[in-house]
Design a protein around this nucleic acid. Sequence first.
DNA 1: CACGAACCTGAACTCTTTCTGAAAATCCGG
DNA 2: CCGGATTTTCAGAAAGAGTTCAGGTTCGTG
Lengths: 221, 221
Amino acid sequence: MRLLLVEDDRLLAEGLTSQLEKAGFSVDITHTAKEAVVLGEQEDYKAGVLDLGLPDGNGLDVLRKWRSSKVTFPVLILTARGDWQDKVNGLKAGADDYLAKPFQTEELIARLNAIMRRSEGRVHSTVKVGRFELDENRQCLQIEDGTEHSLTGTEFRLLRCLMGRPGHIFSKEQLMEQLYNLNESPNENIIEAYIRRLRKLVGAETIATRRGQGYLFNDSV
Amino acid sequence: MRLLLVEDDRLLAEGLTSQLEKAGFSVDITHTAKEAVVLGEQEDYKAGVLDLGLPDGNGLDVLRKWRSSKVTFPVLILTARGDWQDKVNGLKAGADDYLAKPFQTEELIARLNAIMRRSEGRVHSTVKVGRFELDENRQCLQIEDGTEHSLTGTEFRLLRCLMGRPGHIFSKEQLMEQLYNLNESPNENIIEAYIRRLRKLVGAETIATRRGQGYLFNDSV
DNA sequence: CACGAACCTGAACTCTTTCTGAAAATCCGG
DNA sequence: CCGGATTTTCAGAAAGAGTTCAGGTTCGTG
C-alpha cells in the first residue's frame, strides 16, 4: 500500500511517516513540488497526501499536473486551519478529501483509508474472497470455518494486495513495489518467504505460483 | 515478439533486457545510432525502444531515418527526466510514446504493450480464434469447453504468434526469429518440440503442418 | 518403389526459479 | 539494555522450464 507524502516541513513529514508506516503503508516523502509531480507520474501509489504550502510552487499546481497527466490515485490535501478557499480550490482541482492543520494522525489515517476504499469502489473495510475475509481495520484474516488469525504488518499488506485482485498475477517485482518504498530494497527472496507463511494460513492451493510470472490468489472457492 | 532496444548505457540496457525477456519479448540491443538504423530497417521487429542520448548521433535522427524508409513498427523514446522539448520533437519525428528516465520497468512494458496493440488496431488484450482465446495479461489459454491452461513463456510466445494470424503459414525460421534474438540460436528442433506441446493442449488438428513450408493455426472452428 | 529430407515423439539433460527450514538481524516496548 | 516479535537473509533441496538427442514415421520425388 504505497503512499506519497508531499510535505515541506521535514519534522512533520518524518513524524507522520513513522505513524503511517505503523498503519501499514509504505511511504515515500518529497519536500518539493517539482519532485512531487515526477514521482506521482512515475511511481505506482495507492494514494497521495499533499500539503498546499510548498517552497517551490503551489500544491494545487502539482495536483492539476497530476490530473492532467493520467495520475488517478486519490489525493488528500492538507491546508492551514479553516482556509475554506483552499478547500474549494482543492476539490475543484481534483482532490478527494481535505484536512485542516493541526490534525490528529488517526484522523488522517481514517480519511486515507476512506478515500482509498472509495476509489476502489468499495464501501466496507473488509475484502472477501472465497472462504476468506480480510479485515482492514483489525488487520486480521477470518476463515469460513470460524478461525481467525491476526497478521503482522507485512503479511497483511502482501495478502491485501493479492486478495484485492483475485485471479490476477502479480510479479515479484510488483509485490516488492507495493510492500517497500524507494529506500528499502531487501532481497527478493523475501516475497517467497512471506508467500510461504501466508500459504500456511490459507492453504498452499489458495495462492498459486506462475513460474516466471508471479503469484495469484485463487479466485475459485 | 521481437523488440529492438537502442540504449547507450550498457548496464541499463542489460537490466532492461532481462526484464523485458521475462515479459515475453525477445530483445536485440544496440548501443549506436548507426547500427540502430540498419537493424531497424533489416530486421522484423514488433516495436522499438529508443534512447535519445546516443554517442554517435541523435536518437531523433535514427527515428527520422526509420520513418523515411519504410520502418513502421511503433517506437517508444526514452529521455532525461522532464525534458519536454524532447517529447514534442520525438512525437513530431514519428514516435508513438514517450517515457522519462528514471522509470519503472513495469511502466515501460505496459506502454510497449499499449503501443503495439494500438499499432495493430486492437483494443482488447485477448486474441480469440475459433474455440480458443489467448489472454495476454494472464498468459493463459481458455477453451470454449471452459478449461483454462496457463502457458510457459515460450509456449505463450509461440502460440501468440500463430494465433495472431490464423491460417497464415509461418516457417520454422520465422518462428525462430520471433522467439529468439540474434544471440540465441538453439537447435531448430525446438520449434517442433514446442509445436508438439501446444498440440497436446489444442488438439493435433488445430495446428497444421505444411511440409517444407511451416505451420499454421487452423482458422476453421 | 526406394531414398532422403522433413517431421514427430519421448525421454534425458541442464539451467533457472521457487521452496523450505533455520539462523541472523532488526525493531519495539518495558 | 533486555526479551519477544517480526523481518530479512542464507543455502541446500525440489520442481519446472528450456533444450537436445536419438530413433521412428511420413512424405514427396526421382
